[in-house]
Design a protein around this nucleic acid. Structure first.
Lengths: 173, 173
DNA sequence: GGCCACATGTAAGTAGTTACATGATTCC
DNA sequence: GGAATCATGTAACTACTTACATGTGGCC
């Protein structure tokens, strides 16, 4: 169960509420991880019963109460186990690659649309990630930085290749 | 439901059994799509009731009977709709990137192990895909070929970057 | 004798999403 | 007045996977 490891990692760097954890995902690693409230809240409850985290209810003025979670010693241990576990094999079910694969059975128009759409989306993802990257300029967090660099490299290589496929498709007119 | 589109795409290029469809996945696009028998067989049944495909039971000598499926006209239409539908956004839940991100909270040993393991796996994926690529040398299937090229580019860029992260980690000894 | 390839199928479980409910406050 | 933000939570649903059941025939 990967989400538990991710939550432990976030709580390992400080106490947070479920709502904050969701924003943490979105702001920092939305490009390779995602989870909804429907997953986060039940998972936090489950982790509390397993003594991996503890809950404190914090009252706020003008805002609803917060459930602030802290990681326990057992939680820290579990997080270290997660970091040392063997890598899960990655099967990225890519809608774009799948449809590109079937391109030889489609019309030129369909493929031009698909490629242009993919190009726009990858360029958008690249730009957003690049903005985030600027925050890391002099950061000592080399692994977080590397993570973003890997994302940028990946998007950039796709953008270049999609452009080159598009020129081949255009030529066939 | 993406798997239906994929099955339609395979049956659009000829009749196949569920077992053959599974092998088709594994041999041709295991690097960006995967599905188990537990998904394939029930999906084929469902698609038959929706008149997207038709079943023929073929008797074989020394082997069990086969259910060979053919695509119908409705199925061909549905496949074209699938190819023209807007792209689904891709969230590749990457175990490797997630754990790399938390690397600044881990020991150097842990990260060296993680990076070496990832390097080996990506190199393995690259080699396997490269073998497949050789079959496409003079192929007119430009989109299938491009697909594999995108896979190779992706793996290669990751391999190079992981190597460079590793040298940084090594220096810190 | 045991394992692999061929071939189909189901039951139980996993992991998650979407949509809704609740409710206060702030911004336009 | 409506939408957005903050904040938690549940129910229903989707989309799978894993493990098992069944059976033949070939290979070592």
């Amino acid at each position: 169960m990967k989400i538990q490891g991710v939550i432990l990692g976030i709580l390992n760097s400080g106490p947070h509420s479920g709502y904050e954890i969701k924003r943490y995902f979105e702001e920092r690693f939305s490009f390779f991880f995602d989870a909804s409230f429907g997953t986060i809240y039940p998972t936090l409850r489950k982790m509390e019963t397993e003594y991996l985290i503890t809950k404190k209810i914090v009252k706020q003025e003008g805002k609803p109460d917060k459930n602030i979670y802290n990681i326990t010693d057992t939680g820290v241990e579990r997080f270290q186990e997660y970091l040392n576990a063997p890598l899960e094999k990655e099967v990225s079910n890519s809608d774009f690659l799948m449809r590109l694969y079937f391109g030889d059975m489609a019309t030129r128009e369909t493929m031009e649309m698909l490629l242009c759409q993919a190009l726009r989306e990858y360029q958008d993802l690249y730009d957003k990630l690049n903005e985030k990257y600027e925050q890391y300029e002099d950061s000592p967090l080399i692994f977080q930085k590397s993570c973003i660099e890997l994302g940028l490299i990946h998007y950039d290589s796709f953008i270049q290749k999609i452009k080159s496929i598009l020129t081949v498709v255009e030529k066939k007119k």
